[in-house]
Amino acid sequence: MTEMSYLDGNMLDGPLREVFAVDLSGATGRCASCGTTGPMAGLRVYTHAPGLVARCPSCAEVMLRLVRGPDRTWLDLRGTTYLQVPTPPG
């Protein structure tokens, strides 16, 4: 794998929808490292790490890590200050 081989955060929707009922690829996230705020679909996703690693497109720090075991899933979000998820009123 070269350094170029990453995917877009849009592909996280499938794996994350096993855990959450919302489409997080449509959410906005803020990078804890550099403060950049943007669509989670715009993160750079590396699939050949153990699990999925999503990095900030601006500073390349890890914002999200998803590791799936046989009977549980770990979601590490310490690189994300917040997630803003669109929710319809009512």
Binding site: D8, G9, N10, M11, D13, G14, R17, E18, D23, S25, G26, P39, A41
Partner: peptide, 9 residues
Amino acid sequence: VRGPVGGWF
């Protein structure tokens, strides 16, 4: 099959 997914693109 799991889907449809990907609400951004």
